[in-house]
Design a protein around this nucleic acid. Structure first.
Lengths: 195, 195
DNA sequence: GTCTATAAGCGGATAGAC
DNA sequence: GTCTATCCGCTTATAGAC
């Protein structure tokens, strides 16, 4: 059967999300218009509203998806053993995961303030859940006597800030490979929390 | 002599900058209108243009001022001696300086993408200058044999990311004082780069 | 130095045709 | 599912009165 006139693609939804991700990362949520996203996708602005009720829901969906992906990927990781190996796994995972999706990482941090309060609370909760996992590893290590951290919560935030910072300078095809970056950061983290 | 009707204040200029700083930090440059800044100051939007040629110049001026303050404050610091004491001074300075002006720190990082290319290049240059100072300290320490960093540039970026991260969680009047925070971070940094 | 008024255009979102 | 057309409020910036 013939399609209705404008039905050009079954995958417009994902393309809308991808275009929004790239544009929000590059210019910021508030600076990107729905018309611009539509233009990137190759449709008119009105068509976007088949895929999102409004602009805010589009932003929230991107951030929510990113945090869900992060926690799901982390949950798939083997996470048994002593604190030292658990920490090493966490560090290498965090770097690899974040370097694979720099745009999502960027907006998940930069656009938090553009979320409406209820949406913000959801993302914040997921973020704290992730931070809590690292904090638990550090506490285990302190109990085992292999780590020496005066404040596990602060140490967890400090380590995450350091690791996430790679996304600000890393360029694929640059001087360092991902495994090299992982090694450099793992060495620094290991020493920083060592007993 | 009587003033002309609307001349209510000699300090409107600084108040415009302060209002813009607070609002840009809270909502983002693109999300804040000139009308909103004017409303915060208590004038009409048109009056703002006595103090800035346009909105972009206002943003650039705030970022430029912050980076100039940072480099000037750092230049006033005694900076002689061995790499270990120089690094300790850098770490304590960085934390204290950044915790004193969280809004300026925030926008200096978040609003870079909203700078026009020439303005961006200026701020980026100042930022690199600051990073270069830490890198030089790390190189000195490596030469002295007191530090072991495989890549001084990466290590400098990692340390700065970790230190600047304090602004995302620190709240004045909270559980930890600034000196306590400085001590915790200095301990981690010292160990992370130690030979 | 500040005001009011206005220009000229872009913003998110919707209605209804196809 | 997409289009065109449109509502209407808000945007930056300027002009000219006081």
């Amino acid at each position: 059967m013939a399609r209705t006139q404008g039905s050009h693609s079954e995958i417009t939804g994902p393309r809308v999300r991808e275009a929004a991700l790239q544009l929000f990362a590059k210019h910021g949520y508030a600076a990107v218009s729905m018309r611009r996203i539509a233009s990137e996708v190759g449709v008119q602005a009105g068509a976007l509203y088949n895929y999102t009720p409004d602009k805010q829901a589009l932003l929230f969906s991107l951030l929510r998806g990113h945090m869900d992906d992060l926690l799901a990927a982390r949950a798939e990781l083997r996470d048994a053993g002593g604190a030292l190996v658990r920490l090493e796994r966490f560090v290498r995972f965090h770097i690899a995961f974040h370097l694979e999706r720099p745009e999502a990482v960027f907006i998940s941090y930069m656009e938090l303030r553009n979320l409406e309060p209820e949406n913000f609370a959801v993302i914040e909760g997921l973020r704290r859940e992730y931070e809590g996992q690292l904090e638990a590893i550090l506490r285990q290590g302190a109990a085992e006597g292999v780590f020496d951290v005066s404040d596990a919560k602060i140490a967890a935030l400090a380590v995450i800030a350091m690791l996430t910072g790679v996304t600000t300078w890393y360029r694929s095809g640059g001087r360092l490979s991902v495994p090299e970056v992982q090694q450099i950061y793992w060495t620094m983290v290991r020493k920083a929390v060592a007993a």
